[in-house]
Write a protein that binds this DNA or RNA. Structure first.
Lengths: 193, 193
DNA sequence: ACGCTAACTTGATCTATATCAAGCGTTAAT
DNA sequence: ATTAACGCTTGATATAGATCAAGTTAGCGT
């Protein structure tokens, strides 16, 4: 049954680029399973990220804190990679925290091991490049979105494009994710029903 | 004197990861020089990006258009890479245009050649990964910035962190880049003098 | 099942910033 | 040299969404 977790990871990685059996054996041996309870943190603001995660099951949120208010940056679900990735790459203090919104099952790999794998295998290096590209493309989209639309438009777009997350994530986090207050979110919700 | 342009590219690339002479010879042969006049476009919204650029000299701006209004996404200067990078990677229609703010000298490489180089050389693949990482880290920072600060705070932060761009870029573009109107920008400017 | 806390709703008010409008200075074209 | 076009400034007004405050609901721990 732990097999399933590694199979999920394998599917995810080979979705980017093919990997030989030998490479997979080495690669996969470096990942360990971790479980984390609801409300616990993968990492807190100001810490340096040493791990890169794969979410097998659960929901997590990334958020920064500004003057005591939380600013929700994003979410990770089943099949996503997670972690304070910019801190992980640059080894700078993380500007945000990652917290489990549900009990979650993850795989993690530490930075040293991952970087050794990058050195050792071109396929893994390629996966790293393509994964970075995917994240980057998503962030570029979101940047334009955030600046192009009103609160109402952003609400409706989220509703159309990711209806499932309304079930998974408390409204206040969705509101913050869309850059509005919980009150505004609630009013939009009422309006559209 | 064209040497200087290639030397600048070499310095930029090897700043990420070392590259052998043979690799460099092959890699550099795939880049061609392009010149572009002030106000001309590298790419327009809706087109698919086939090239990846290196700015030897000049200033460019990337902007999206929403309801006739321009939303400035970012700038490229001497020593930066440029292009509609997400369109280049995903081969989807670009959501933004790139326009020269000054007469500019660039190097460009087409996608096919670059991807062949990724296949051929692990060092180039690594450069690709690290370059993606750098862009990604920058975008993550900017995302948090854009959401954490008021117009005034954003203005002051830009003034402190990148005073040079006040000389290079018209105010209206800086205003849009910071997510405010030109009027608001002008008022903040007056206030702080 | 009960009580407590946190999430959500609803209404009243406030405010940062946008919008609209008009004028000024500088550059560029005729 | 004159005018047109554009970028910047300044003032008046409008508004989306925030903030503040109070009440309601729902989930969680004991």
């Amino acid at each position: 049954m732990q097999d399933k977790i590694y199979t999920a990871l394998k599917n995810k990685v080979t979705g980017f680029t093919p990997i030989s059996d030998a490479e997979w054996a080495d690669f996969s041996s470096k990942w360990q399973m971790v479980e984390i309870n609801k409300d616990d943190y993968l990492i807190k603001e100001g810490q340096i990220e040493h791990y890169f995660y794969f979410v097998f099951d659960g929901v997590l949120r990334a958020f920064a804190t500004k003057d005591g208010d939380e600013i929700c940056i994003g979410f990770s679900y089943n099949g996503d990679f997670s972690g304070a990735y910019d801190s992980f790459l640059a080894q700078t203090k993380s500007e945000f925290a990652i917290q489990a919104l549900t009990k979650s099952t993850l795989l993690k790999i530490n930075r040293e091991n991952l970087f050794l794998l990058f050195d050792k295998y071109k396929s893994i290096e390629r996966w790293g490049r393509l994964f970075n590209a995917e994240i980057l493309i998503g962030m570029a989209k979101r940047q334009v979105e955030a600046r192009s639309y009103s609160a109402e438009e952003k609400y409706l777009r989220l509703l159309n494009q990711s209806p499932h997350i309304f079930q998974l994530v408390p409204q206040k986090h969705l509101a913050s994710y869309l850059g509005m207050t919980a009150e505004t979110f609630s009013r939009l919700r009422k309006k559209k029903r």
